[in-house]
């Protein structure tokens, strides 16, 4: 497995974590817990953003990593 696919795999995991946290946050009744979950989901979203940028760089540097 190349680095490109590994990073992409990690990105998809991050996306799934973000979605999981958000869905938990929506379903949670308790305000404090909800706040923690929403904040966590937000931070994960920022990480996701950075990862996407990195994948773009990787794809530009190494053309064969393009696509899924």
């Amino acid at each position: 497995m190349t680095i490109g696919t590994q990073v992409k795999q990690c990105l998809s995991s991050i996306k799934s974590i973000e979605a999981g946290l958000s869905s938990l946050a929506i379903r949670t009744q308790d305000k404090e817990t909800k706040a923690i979950l929403e904040e966590s989901a937000g931070t994960i979203g920022e990480i996701k953003h950075d990862m996407k940028a990195r994948i773009k760089d990787l794809e530009r540097e190494e053309d064969q990593y393009k696509g899924f």
Binding site: C10, S13, I17, L24
Partner: peptide
């Protein structure tokens, strides 16, 4: 199982990111 799974996945991703940092 949802919550423990989520936590485990977060830990795995954290380890992955560390690994990438070392490799690049």
């Amino acid at each position: 199982q949802e919550k423990p799974l989520l936590l485990a996945e977060m830990k795995k991703c954290q380890a992955d990111l560390e690994l990438f940092a070392l490799q690049t």
